[in-house]
Nucleic acid binder design. Structure first.
Length: 870
RNA sequence: GCCGGGGUGGCGGAACUGGUAGACGCAAGGGACUUAAAAUCCCUCGUUCCCAACGGGACGUGUCGGUUCGAUUCCGACCCCCGGCACCA
């Protein structure tokens, strides 16, 4: 029977679809398992083999779980709102409303082609009114709980896209889409108060089964730091400036202060003499692009305000400066400067001739500071506190500050509130009405959804307002409270709002009474296994965790963390042509460190025209925009999807980046063909009653191949559970090789003929072991064996520990830790016997003949190490 | 600079809890089959040295050092690569 993937693959895909094989039942006696991949934005370029590096392994995992008796929920949907869809729509001149279903259909087609086991009855689309109605409901929930507020804040304004960007959409001061430098613009905006949950988001990380790297990234992002806020009185004024410091123990060394240029008190405290210089500096700081300000390399600048404050611990006068190295967005926007023990303050003091005082010493003595010493130590020059360690000093001074009412213990966070407003068309409208009498009024729940109007012009207004602002029918409405004329909020919600709860919707996708029914939530949630790109390490995962905690607090769910296990897939790199920049060509800069790009991508149409000897090839992330994609269709055409699936999982561990090369796929394809050939032949003489026909006594060869089978069953299950698909496939290849050898015709007449019951056992088990990896082939073989249904609902084979057990081991004999002999011995040989056997070996006798025996170490079942001296 | 991950043959990668380094595969070379090619099957395949051969020795997991009977694995210092953060007070 010839292996013909082009026939069997479509055949089984059709059957799975017709029979709804992958439907997850809400009521089942089986334990539930919720497996989820981050839902994608369906782009016009479709899926390539790189995307499958995430979807295929998870699919294999789900099939394994199903075969192990779990009721598996494995859904797929579309993250359809947001800037990429809107930008694509602007480019093609079509409404995203029309574009998204076309793109989604293409994604769905490719995922089905790849044999992925999704329950398509649960497909969701975040731009569907039936979906975003609940996104709006979440907004109201947050609003009602005081977690949504409006504030005027500078937005990240991209002059090229003519739109606002979220903080995480700004990469090193540049727009993540078009790379233009980002400017600041003040706008009234909506925020979610994620900072109120900072501590819980931080503490609950500990219990999660996520990679340490991922958790560290979240911890860094939350950025908790303990310290104190201290009030400094401005001399000859009614003002005081509050600072945050992690080192209140260095207060005696605070010789000046610096405020951020945007600090609200700057205008009030600046003296007439300094006003001109200060205003000029503030203006310059505002006009500067964020990218320049973020550059840590540049030298410190600043201006004296003319004002001075009083150091509360010793009454000394400290001049107040402004400088752009202090950020308004962190802490209080003002710092006390301790040049002796902070590198930035040190540099600033040196440059402007400000005094540097040592207040921390490595050994308790005083010495000249050649540079800032930020470490902990013993206090000096600190009055009565001299001699205290940093930790003791902190405790005492904080207590004193609190007693005097000058300061208090404070925990500060780096994380900022979540800016949700987008001045864009393609998002869920924010369900708020602005009434001249009643103020901000939430749209009543029964009036949801606030429908996104169908408009002709959804291009950015360019004024900073959403395109919705220019649609009178949308804007003008009645106040839900007083019935008077009012205006709708025209901002829409950023895409992260949709993706912060979509995993709940899969559980109950058609529910029009709630975002999901409580009984179903209790049954399915939380997500047991979640995979996705590392790029969502912070935003998406933090926001989802935040919303889940809000739901918990509001009594809607009974758990606090949405994703139990998380793994990040590596990306697929493609060998990509590029060139060196031409002489004098501005290759652009990357990041704030002025690193010059030394490689420019060549688009496919440029490649032909470019001199071949000047083309520089590099590994770059596979993406349509780079023109370096390979599609699953291309590969399936040549080798079949099952071979591609095997290759995607075999080439590297799930979390590693992989350099795509088509050469390696030969090996995977060869393996699939070999397995097919053997299994198809075995199926022809299959004995369904093999269990009762297994002979009681078996020749060595038969026992060996059965041992290999049962070891493989054990290993493959273990590896799939650990998401280690590459080694699972390697084990299957070994089994295939062993079976092949066992089945060789024995010309020399040695060894027994293959046993029919054993061959049947192997055929049945191996078909099932292959099912997660090559489901089409497995199902075809399964029916050839005369089995009903699909492998998806079959039982994963159990291994017999006594069959898998080895009866002989290779004893390794070392002399002084060096390998000197290998001896085959019965597996149950006791240590004393092992030692005797080792010492009797001729090779060992030879190796130790002119030495004195010192001692012998025996590791049970493994090795003997003989220590000798010469 | 800080945080996280990593560095193993020509290549992708494997190695349980400190115990045979290089599983499995790719590529390469040799052979069988074939009119021929493809496919398939068999053999070799870390470096180096000794041997006619059978065999055997030394070295070898980024570098240097340490712990240990024994280190890819543990500890210390350093180098390099990837990802993230970055004047965070």
């Amino acid at each position: 029977m010839h292996y013909d993937p082009k026939t069997i693959e479509p055949k089984w895909q059709r059957r799975w679809e017709d029979e709804k094989t992958f439907r997850a039942a809400d009521k089942s006696a089986k334990p539930k398992y919720y497996a989820l991949e981050m839902f994608p934005y369906p782009s016009g370029s479709g899926l390539h083999v790189g995307h499958l590096k995430n979807y295929v392994p998870m699919d294999a995992f789900c099939r394994y779980q199903s075969m192990n008796g779990y009721n598996v929920l494995h859904p797929m949907g579309w993250d359809a709102f947001g800037q990429p869809a809107e930008n694509a729509a602007i480019q093609t001149g079509r409404n995203p409303r029309d574009l998204v279903p076309v793109y989604a259909a293409n994604y769905r087609r490719t995922l089905k082609l790849a044999g992925c086991s999704y329950d398509w009855d649960r497909e969701i689309n975040s731009s569907d009114p039936g979906y975003y109605r609940w996104t709006q409901w979440f907004f109201l929930l947050l609003h009602q709980r005081g977690l949504a507020y409006r504030a005027t804040a500078p937005i990240n304004w991209c002059p090229s896209c003519k739109t606002g960007l979220a903080n995480e959409e700004v990469k090193e001061g540049r727009c993540w889409r078009c790379d233009s430098p980002v400017e600041k613009r003040p706008m009234p905006q909506w925020f979610f108060r994620i900072t109120a949950y900072a501590d819980r988001l931080l503490n609950d990380l500990d219990a999660l089964d996520w990679s340490e790297g991922m958790k560290e990234m979240q911890r860094d992002w939350i950025g908790r730091s303990e310290g104190a806020t201290v009030k400094f009185v401005i001399r000859n004024s009614k003002f005081e400036v509050e600072v945050f410091t992690t080192r209140p123990d260095t207060l005696f060394g605070a010789t000046f202060m610096v405020l951020a240029p945007e600090h609200p008190l700057v205008g009030a405290i600046t003296t007439a003499a300094q006003r001109g210089a200060v205003e000029a500096y503030v203006k310059k700081a505002q006009g500067e692009a964020e990218i320049d300000r973020l550059n840590a390399e540049r030298t410190k600048t600043g201006v004296f305000t003319g004002a001075s404050a009083v150091n509360p611990v010793d009454g000394r006068e400290v001049p107040v400066w402004i400088a752009d190295y202090v950020m308004m967005g962190y802490g209080t926007g003002a710092i006390m400067c301790v040049p002796g023990h902070d590198a930035r303050d040190f540099e600033f003091a040196r440059k402007f001739g400000l005094p540097i005082v040592q207040v921390v010493s490595r050994d308790g003595s005083r010495y000249e500071l050649a540079e800032a010493e930020p470490g902990e130590g013993i206090a000096v020059n600190s009055g009565q506190y001299d001699g205290l360690t940093t930790a003791e000093f902190k405790k005492k001074i904080t207590a004193w500050l609190e007693a005097e009412g000058i300061g208090k213990r404070t925990v500060n966070y780096r994380i900022r509130d979540w800016l949700i407003s987008r001045q864009r068309y393609w998002g869920a409208p924010i369900p708020i009405v602005h009434c001249p009498k009643c103020g901000e009024v939430p749209v009543p729940e029964h009036d949801l959804p606030v429908l996104l109007p169908d408009v002709r012009n959804y291009q950015p207004s360019g004024t900073g307002e959403s395109p919705l602002a220019s649609i009178p029918e949308f804007v003008h409405t009645q106040c839900p409270d007083c019935g008077g004329p009012a205006k709708r909020e025209t901002d829409t919600m950023g895409g992260y709002a949709c993706s912060s709860w979509y995993f709940f919707r899969f559980i109950d996708p058609a529910n029009d009474k709630a975002f999901a029914g409580r009984d179903k939530l209790d049954h399915w949630m939380p997500v047991d296994f979640y995979t996705g790109g590392i790029e969502h390490a912070r935003s998406h995962l933090l926001y989802s965790r935040f919303w889940t905690k809000v739901l918990f607090d509001a009594g809607y769910v009974g758990f606090q963390e949405p994703f139990k296990i998380l793994k990040n897939q590596g990306s697929l790199l493609a060998y990509t042509p590029g060139r060196k920049p031409f002489a004098g060509e501005d290759a652009g800069t990357e990041g704030g460190d002025e690193k010059t790009l030394d490689w420019i991508l060549l688009k496919p149409h440029e490649l032909g025209k470019f001199p071949q000897n000047q083309v520089v090839w590099r590994w770059a992330r596979m993406s349509k925009s780079k023109g370096n994609v390979v599609t699953p269709e291309q590969i399936a055409e040549k080798y079949g999807i099952d071979s591609l699936r095997v290759y995607e999982m075999f080439m590297a561990p799930f979390e590693d980046d992989v350099q795509w090369s088509e050469e390696g796929i030969h090996g995977s394809h060869r393996f699939v063909c070999r397995a097919w050939r053997w299994l198809a032949a075995a199926a022809a003489q299959f004995d369904p009653e093999w269990r009762t026909h297994l002979p009681a006594e078996m020749p060595t060869e038969v026992r060996a191949v059965r041992r290999k089978l049962h070891q493989t069953i054990r290993k493959v299950g273990h590896d799939i559970k650990g998401f280690q698909f590459n080694t699972a496939i390697a084990a299957l290849m070994e089994l295939c090789n062993a079976v092949h050898e066992y089945n060789q015709p024995r010309e020399d007449g040695q060894g027994p003929a293959p046993d029919r019951a054993v061959v049947s056992e192997i055929a049945e088990c191996m078909t099932l072991l292959l099912a997660p990896f090559t489901p089409h082939m497995a199902d075809e073989l399964w029916s050839t064996l005369g089995k009903p249904g699909t492998t998806y609902h079959a039982q994963w084979p159990a291994h017999d520990e006594s069959v898998a057990a080895v009866n002989e081991i290779t004893l390794v004999v070392q002399v002084n830790g060096k390998l000197r002999d290998r001896i085959t011995v019965p597996a149950n040989t006791v240590n004393k016997e092992l030692e005797r056997i080792a010492l009797e070996s001729n090779k060992i006798k030879e190796a130790i003949k002119s030495s004195t025996l010192v001692k012998v170490l025996v590791v049970k079942g493994k090795l003997v190490n003989i220590v000798v001296s010469r």
